[in-house]
């Protein structure tokens, strides 16, 4: 009998770890964050200790994937009627529209004075406090362009030319935020998906998969951010091999925001938590944090007048800023249309 008994005890102890872990630390403020915010080397581990010092409180980060998964969390939390966090960080325009119902909309939003004009113009729903933004764009690998005797495309419509056949790496719009942005961008410009589908080499499940293929020189263009160029500059790309491509039609903007979770301040410390949570949103917009954003998140700070590192200076600004569709119903319809066309 003994081995079985040992096994049962082992299982109980394993289960016990889980329980103890949740009882151990008395946490005052919990944040749902996208993964790279919480990961070592990301913004979270750098600014959270500073905030904790300031507020004299304890902050816990619960990370999960990307913005879509954050919404899943909020949805599941709402379903069980108990929120696991007071703050959510890392929702962009479309995600914010979808998450509206789970957000405390009484907090100040995107109209604030200190925000950059692009951010203000993005028009996030009430309750969302934007903290950074960026422009989606193709990144080009000039070595590969040279090898294939290609010139940088000047317009989005150039991508439909035969020489770009199987030369683009995109993300799947159904599983990736940049992928969805590309699909909506193409729709905004009236692109013909039945033609466009011959041009991509593959649809990676996420940005990291796509960019990894790009760096393995699988294709000369990848859908990413203009600020990817700054990253390469900062990390030894002196020759300018990797370059952001700006189209005459303009580039879509992405604004990332944080918000307070609705019905999450119920406990005995609810009022205190709420005050702390609001001060955290303020802290995100502080000059101190905003100055860190470019080299941690590789995004532009949402606050205007924050000094940018030298690597950002060479990053081209889009000729026009395109605001993408954010209505969840319309997005769903256009994704369905997309699926039928490319199938």
């Amino acid at each position: 009998m003994r081995p079985w008994l040992a096994a049962v005890l082992a299982l109980l102890s394993v289960a016990g770890w889980g329980v103890r872990a949740s009882l151990a630390s008395p946490v005052l403020l919990t944040i749902y964050a996208y993964d790279s915010f919480a990961a070592p080397g990301g913004l979270g581990p750098e600014i959270i200790p500073k905030f904790e010092k300031k507020c004299g409180c304890q902050v816990r980060l619960l990370a999960s994937g990307d913005g879509s998964q954050l919404i899943s969390r909020l949805a599941l939390d709402a379903e069980r009627g108990k929120s696991g966090a007071q703050i959510v960080i890392g929702l962009d325009g479309p995600a914010a529209q979808r998450a509206r119902g789970y957000i405390d909309s009484s907090v100040g939003g995107s109209g604030r004075e200190e925000l950059a004009p692009e951010v203000k113009a993005a028009g996030l729903p009430a309750g969302f406090v934007p903290y950074d933004f960026g422009y989606f764009a193709f990144m080009a690998d000039r070595d590969q362009l040279k090898r294939q005797n290609l010139k940088l495309p000047a317009r989005f419509s150039d991508l439909l030319r035969p020489e770009w056949r199987r030369n683009l790496i995109l993300e799947d719009p159904r599983t990736s935020t940049p992928g969805l942005a590309f699909a909506l961008y193409a729709d905004t410009l009236g692109a013909d998906w039945s033609k466009l589908r011959a041009q991509w080499l593959t649809l990676a499940p996420g940005w990291d998969g796509a960019y990894g293929l790009f760096l393995k020189a699988e294709a000369p263009l990848v859908w990413s951010y203009t600020t990817s160029q700054a990253y390469h500059q900062e990390h030894g790309d002196r020759s300018g091999r990797y370059q952001a491509v700006i189209f005459e039609e303009g580039q879509p903007i992405q604004v990332e925001a944080a918000a307070l979770v609705k019905n999450s301040f119920n406990g005995p410390e609810g009022a205190r938590q709420r005050a702390l949570a609001q001060s955290f949103l303020e802290f995100l917009l502080s000059k101190e944090v905003q100055a860190l954003l470019p080299t941690r998140n590789w995004m532009y700070p949402a606050r205007k007048g924050v000094a940018l590192p030298a690597s950002f200076e060479g990053v081209p600004k889009p000729a026009r800023v395109i605001r993408l569709e954010a209505d969840p119903e319309k997005i769903k319809a256009s994704l369905n249309q997309w699926t039928r066309t490319v199938q």
Partner: peptide, 23 residues
């Protein structure tokens, strides 16, 4: 997802993924 080159190469499993991860 990575080697298939996107639709139409997709399976039930990738569909589960997109239904849970997105939309």
């Amino acid at each position: 997802l990575i080697l298939g080159g996107g639709p139409p190469v997709q399976t039930l499993e990738t569909a589960v993924y997109s239904r849970l991860r997105f939309g």
